[in-house]
Design a protein around this nucleic acid. Sequence first.
RNA 1: CGGGGUGUAGCGCAGUCUGGCUAGCGCACCUGCUUUGGGAGCAGGGGGUCGGAGGUUCGAAUCCUCUCACCCCGACCA
Length: 484
Amino acid sequence: MATNITPRAENYSQWYLDVIAAGQLADHAPVKGCMVIRPTGYALWEEIQAVLDRRFKETGHVNAYFPLLIPQSFITKEAEHVEGFAPELAVVTRAGGKELEEPLVIRPTSETVIGHMYSQWISSWRDLPLLINQWANVMRWEMRTRMFLRTSEFLWQEGHTAHETPQEAEEETLKMLDVYREFLEGHLAMPVLAGRKTEREKFPGADRTYCVEALMQDKKALQAGTSHNLGQNFSKAFDITFLDRANERLHAHTTSWGVSTRLIGGLLMTHSDDDGLVLPPRIAPVKAVIIPLFKNDEEKALVLPFAEQVKTALGGCLDPLKVRMDTRYDQRPAERYFHWIQQGVPLRLEVGPRDVAGGQVCAVRRDTRAKAMIGLDDLGREIPALLEQMQADLYAKALAFRQANTHLVDTYEEFKQVLTEKGGYILAHWNGSEEVEARIKEETKATIRLVPLENTPLPQAAGPGRCMVTGEPSPGRVVFALAY
RNA sequence: CGGGGUGUAGCGCAGUCUGGCUAGCGCACCUGCUUUGGGAGCAGGGGGUCGGAGGUUCGAAUCCUCUCACCCCGACCA
C-alpha cells in the first residue's frame, strides 16, 4: 500500500495530484496555472504524438508550424470566436521596451492565423483539399486549473483543413473524430462515446462540433478530443476563396480538430489505482523493467549476467529503448519495486538467484499484481502476449466500468436522483432547446456531453421518446453527465 | 470577481491566542555500519531569520498597519 498517495475513496482530487507527484509526471511551475512536464510525463506525450502523428500522415495530412503570436484584430474577425475566447486570452502589449501598436494575442488556438495564411495559399479548386496539422502549445487563461486537465498553457495538436464542398468537410470532420476514437480505444485503452455537441457546448465559430468523451473513475466525464466542422465561418472571416471548375469564386469549407496533453490526465484517471500510475502497455514509454536481486557479490556475479541475457531476449521482441534495467543496487527491493509501480510500468521482471537457478524470470503485472514464471527461452513469445493481454484487460475493465455506470432515466426527478446517488452517464430524452439544457445545468451542474452518433454503441439510447423536463417529443436520448 | 483559508527548511507541519534561552518535528537529502524477493534499522550530519515592508517594544515568527502570493468553493473551460 502506497503511503504517499491518498486513496481514491478518501479524496479523488488529491489522489489524482498524488499519482502525478509519485509518478514524477509533472510539477507546478512558478507561474500560476502552468506546469512543468517532467521526463516521465513527457515520454508519455511523445508516445501519444508518435502514434497520432503517423495516423495523421496516413490519412493524408502534413505538419507545419504557425506562430505563437496572433494580431489581436484577427481574433475579432469571427463573431462567435471572439466572444468565446476573449475572456481567456493572454495578450502581449509591450515588446522591445515600448508599447506595441497592435496588441498580440498568445494563441488560444490557431484558426485565425491559419485562416489568414490559407487565404493566401488557396486560389484554385486544385489547391484543395489543404490538410495541415501542427503540434504546438497554446494558452488559455482559465480561472481554475488542474494539472494536465486544464492548465494555462498546454500542448496539443491542431489539424486545420480546407475543402471544396460541405460534404467533404463533414467527411473530414468525422474521419478525424474516428481517428481519435480508434487511438483512445486501441492505444490508451479508454472506451469513448462519440457524438455531437449541442449548440451551447460547441466550439466558438464552428457549425458543428463532434467529440469523444471518456468516463473517469469518479464517474465524471472528460472531453478527450474534438473535431469541428467550421463550415464557411472562418473562410468568410478570412476570405479563404477559390475558383471552382466552373470559374466561380467560392468560400472554402474548413475543419479543425485537436487533442491535448489532457489525454494524459484522462489516461491516469481511467486506469490508475491507489498505488499510483497504471499505463496500458501500448502507450507505456517503458514496457518492462528488469530488477536484478542479490544479497552479496557471489549472487551478484550470478544474477547480473543472467539479467543481461533477459534484457537481450526482451530487446528481440520489444523496442530495446522501452526495456529498462534497474541498477539501483544500493536500494532495497521493495523500494525499487515501488518506484516502478508508481511510474506505471506494465511489467516488472524480477531476476534473483532462485530465478537464475530455474532459468526463468518472475514477471509481475502492474494492474493485477499477478505473477508468472517465464523461462528465458519463452520470453520472446510470452512477454508480448502478456503485454497484449494486459492491454485487453485494461480496456475490458474500463468498458465494464462505463457500462455499469450508464443509466437510463425518463423523468427529471429520477434524473436528479441518479445524478447525485450514482453519477456516470445518464441517457435521457431532451426537447432540443437551449433553455432546457441551460436549466438542467443550472439546477444540477450536469451538461449534455453529446448527442450520440448513429454508429455510437448505445443501442439503448436509440428510439424516440419525450423530453424528461417538458414532455415534448425527442428523437432519441442524449448523454448527460457531470464533467471536468 | 464573490465566499472561505494559508504563508515558518525541498515537501508536510508545530510554535502565534498568552512576545523572552541558540526557532522545533516528520519526510526527503548527505556519511558510515548492518540489512535486502513488497516502501529497512541504528548512529552521525547539512539546510530555514519565520511571504514582503513599516510600526510598537529592552526584546517580535508571535502584537498593530499596509502589501504580495498561493490554495479551496462558485462563474469560465481542450
